[in-house]
Design a protein around this nucleic acid. Structure first.
Lengths: 137, 137
DNA sequence: AATTATAATGCAAATAATTGCAATTGCAAA
DNA sequence: TTTGCAATTGCAATTATTTGCATTATAATT
């Protein structure tokens, strides 16, 4: 991967950001420093950085895919379908399981940000996610 | 969820299909029986069916998101970034780990098709995924 | 069977993401 | 330096997906 200004600025933007950013947000940020920037360049750079393992790509159910710089302490997320709550999942539990998967399938896992959807305690008690339809066994 | 013909036909289409289908493929299939069908109706129905747990939604790196009916024996996938190979991951290993996550976080996991990206044995030996860039520590 | 509330649909427009291709740029070799 | 190749970019067009709103259809109620 070449040391282009786009690669550099995107990485810097994501590292400085405390939250996940979507492609458009990254575009707007970097555009302040590279006014002639094209959105498709951002998409391609993000894809490149992701493939190189420098950033994570996740669908967190926000409409657009979000990106994050992969730093020292990795973490993952649980996202509630009911209320949208985002719960952090430590890397310990994940890393251990990935190792199992890798050992069992001769496969090197590169996924660096796992997102699991489901229902949080509160929504579960409210009965979210218990929909039963009658028209199918 | 109401018993509409769209819901019914989509579910039937996905159940009959041996492979994952993307939204457009589902649309084309169902359109043969409901000629006036609109693509956005398909997207909305797919979202509904997914939320009801009847189908799984996954980004398998094919450009478009793919859908699959959730049947008796669940399975998950490992997708190789190098060659695109798709390896099946049994549910046993996954279910057990989900249970751990659920127990540790008071969260009911609803994700019913996990996709992990990485590198298969062959690609790993070819050195895929080992890119090192010099311009960043 | 008529009424009613609400889910589902069609359509068009907006947004998100990808792709082909020609022009440009970074990096390495000469 | 200069040259050459391959990676990167811009641009426009395409594809993928979502959303607002008026209309239609379903299922429960009267």
């Amino acid at each position: 991967m070449r040391t282009t200004s786009v690669n550099h600025f995107i990485l810097e933007t994501l590292q400085d950001s405390q939250t996940h950013l979507n492609a458009h947000q990254v575009y707007e940020q970097v555009r302040q420093r590279l006014p002639s920037l094209n959105p498709s360049t951002v998409y391609r750079a993000l894809e490149r950085l992701a493939l190189a393992g420098k950033i994570s790509v996740s669908d967190m159910g926000c409409g657009a895919v979000v990106y994050e710089a992969v730093g020292g302490c990795r973490h993952h997320h649980l996202v509630c379908h009911g209320c949208g709550a985002v719960i952090t999942l430590g890397d310990d539990l994940v890393r251990g399981w990935f190792a199992q998967v890798e050992a069992g399938h001769h496969f090197q896992v590169a996924t660096n940000h796992l997102v699991l959807f489901g229902y949080c305690e509160a929504c579960r008690q409210k009965g979210e996610g218990q929909e039963q339809s009658l028209w199918e066994a």
